[in-house]
Amino acid sequence: MLYHLLFPLAEHISVFNVFRYITFRTGGAIMTALLVSFWLGPGLIRWLKKKQREGQPIRLDGPESHLLTKKGTPTMGGVLILLALASATLLWADLTNGYVWVVLIVTLGYGLIGFADDYLKLTKRSSGGLPGRLKLLGQGMIGVVAAVVLMRLTTPQLATSVAVPFFKDILIPLGFTFPLFGALVMMGSSNAVNLTDGLDGLAIVPVMIAAACFAFIAYLAGNAIFANYLGIPHVPGTGELAVFGGAVVGASLGFLWFNAPPAMVFMGDTGSLSIGGALGAVAVATKHELVLAIIGGLFVLEAVSVIVQVASFKLTGKRVFRMAPLHHHFEKKGWQEPTIVIRFWIIAMILALIGLSTLKLR
């Protein structure tokens, strides 16, 4: 909005020329989302506590300590994340850019699915929520539509292809199956973040790290000079997603203020499904779907731990981990919650650096 209102004034007032720069507007989005979070957070948390009273339902089969330490903490804090990132994006992004709208709609759409899931958990006082098949169906439909639109926005030579990290000019053509692949990336990212969100502050910092990385990648992929120099796919228009990525970073940082141990509020599925879907959508738009698996490697590890646990138990009757997802395994081993959270943050940072190295090592 500010881009459209103030940049045209640059002809008469030169200071407004700064609004042409994506980097300036990305910084503005970070600060706006952060300030919105600080402004709305206390009131929203009080309102959630008043409405929920008993807080988020705690899994009875989870770590025993959670029944004491997590009881009464409200959920649906993801609403704060969505309000902050949406307002910052709408304020600072170029709203004529199709990529911005696709990614924002995916984020809000997945957030709506998460909101329905959280609402059912609260009203039924159960950790069940929305049936898994219905949740996946909603995510899949949004993902397929988004992937089709992204195909149409992207240049024909890249529209249905997947770039391979560490190699220049190697594209895997997927043809008419690309929308399915794109939807799977968004769904996988969304649900992997959801599985990671089990301890205070555990998911939000890796999300913030991944969002910062993809804001940087979007800026490079949208710039022909940088993209050609690095040998990465040049996707005109995706540079504007750096502003969206900045909004996610600011909103995540603001939410962490209230989610740091001991958490005042949980993001719930409203937050985890939406921001996970956002990362997946940006990865598909920038043609860095496979790099997402590296940068978001912590989320992949958490999701794989659940898959391995379920498969092992069904096939052999034995469990590989003491409990899945992976962070609960370490809780069962006696690790303290802050130790798990900080060590997982360190792992997320290392994987992000490895992922960013793919931009140069080609």
Score class of each variant (00 low, 15 high):
I204E: 01
V304S: 04
V148A: 14
E54K: 13
G138Q: 07
K314W: 12
A260W: 11
L134C: 07
L2P: 06
M208G: 11
L68Q: 15
D169Y: 07
L301R: 09
G355T: 04
R125H: 15
A192E: 04
E289N: 02
L122F: 09
E337F: 03
E289T: 08
D118L: 05
Y119C: 07
C213R: 02
W257P: 01
G111K: 06
G55F: 02
E240T: 09
P179Q: 08
E11T: 14
S161K: 01
G175M: 08
F226K: 01
Y119D: 11
L130S: 04
T270Q: 03
A224T: 12
L104N: 04
K71F: 08
K121E: 05
E11S: 15
V300L: 14
N259D: 14
G182Q: 00
N228Y: 10
S37D: 06
C213G: 10
A192P: 09
I58S: 13
A88Q: 08
T196Q: 12
V79N: 02
L108T: 06
I232A: 01
K333F: 07
A352E: 01
K314H: 14
E54H: 13
R343G: 08
K71E: 15
L292E: 00
G198M: 11
L40A: 11
C213H: 04
T73W: 04
H66A: 11
A324R: 07
T270W: 06
T69A: 15
